[in-house]
Amino acid sequence: MNHTAPVAPSGANRAADIATALLVDAENVIGPFRPRVSLVRARLTALLAAAGHVDHALVAFADTWPADDTVPSALAELGAIPWPVPEGPDAAETALAAHARYLAGRGRRWRFLVASADHRLAQVAEYGELHVLAWTDHPVSARLEAAATTIHRLPRTRTGDEHPVPTLPTAGSPNHPPDPVSHLAATRTTDRVIAAIATGAGIALTHRLLDHLLPHRRR
């Protein structure tokens, strides 16, 4: 079944408290190696707009995929967690499937919106309700289509002008409490940045003190 409308959960799903995760296979639906940042923003914006409310969005890609350091920043700015994985065969697909398995094991029911046409993500149906987001001209594998509840077709976005950035609920509001997975990822990222800055500052300070106190040891 094909749809172009936003993938809104049914009333029955809301009543059952099914959480929703958007899992994006970046190289498959955003762009191939080193895409322009404007293209990354435009295509993720289109996917988020189609998905509607999600509890969190995760974008997986090989660590060599981004054109530069601004790509992960753009993903985070739009509300998605950037997840670089070591380059290798099917690395992003494997990571997304593993994440779906992790979420399913947390004691909550999940509805997965998978943005990919790759057959390897059919296994996500084992962990929850599977919906697929794909461009209208993007062939979806027969295996993935058979595993999905629905296939939602979207017009392929080519520039940054087609879609405005969607207005999503603010994290922490009464209707949208912070998601523990995205909050944990953000916290760990912040901790790593602070630790790196502190380590660099400590090393520089130590060298300055040694130069001052022990000048005869410097050649």
Rank of each mutant, 00 (worst) to 15 (best):
42 A>C: 09
18 I>S: 01
169 P>F: 11
200 G>N: 15
48 L>K: 08
41 R>C: 06
149 T>Y: 06
84 P>I: 07
38 S>Q: 12
90 D>E: 14
189 T>F: 03
163 H>V: 15
180 P>R: 01
170 T>Y: 10
213 L>T: 01
216 H>R: 11
203 I>N: 07
148 A>N: 07
219 R>Q: 10
102 Y>T: 09
81 I>C: 09
128 G>P: 05
134 A>Y: 02
124 V>R: 02
58 L>S: 05
80 A>N: 10
79 G>R: 12
104 A>D: 04
146 A>L: 12
30 I>F: 04
89 P>N: 06
1 M>P: 02
91 A>Q: 05
93 E>Y: 00
196 A>K: 14
214 L>G: 02
70 T>M: 13
77 E>K: 14
146 A>E: 15
129 E>L: 14
130 L>R: 03
69 D>M: 03
16 A>M: 11
219 R>K: 04
72 P>D: 06
40 V>T: 14
64 T>Y: 06
2 N>C: 03
119 H>L: 06
182 S>F: 07
104 A>M: 04
207 H>S: 04
18 I>K: 13
71 V>N: 00
63 D>C: 08
202 G>I: 08
157 T>H: 02
53 H>E: 11
150 T>C: 03
35 P>S: 14
7 V>L: 10
30 I>W: 00
197 I>C: 00
15 A>P: 00
211 D>P: 00
162 E>S: 10
87 E>T: 15
150 T>S: 12
167 T>F: 02
20 T>M: 00
46 A>R: 06
67 A>H: 07
92 A>G: 09
116 S>H: 08
199 T>S: 14
55 D>S: 12
169 P>G: 09
149 T>D: 07
55 D>E: 10
193 V>I: 10
23 L>K: 03
122 A>C: 01
139 P>V: 12
145 E>G: 13
217 R>K: 08
218 R>M: 02
176 H>T: 00
89 P>K: 07
158 R>I: 09
76 A>Y: 13
80 A>L: 11
17 D>F: 07
39 L>D: 05
23 L>R: 09
122 A>Q: 06
151 I>D: 01
144 L>I: 05
33 F>T: 09
208 R>M: 05
2 N>S: 10
29 V>F: 10
161 D>L: 12
149 T>V: 14
168 L>T: 15
77 E>M: 03
213 L>K: 03
26 A>T: 14
141 S>P: 05
169 P>I: 12
8 A>E: 11
132 V>M: 02
180 P>Q: 11
112 F>S: 05
206 T>A: 15
1 M>E: 00
34 R>Y: 03
115 A>V: 03
159 T>A: 11
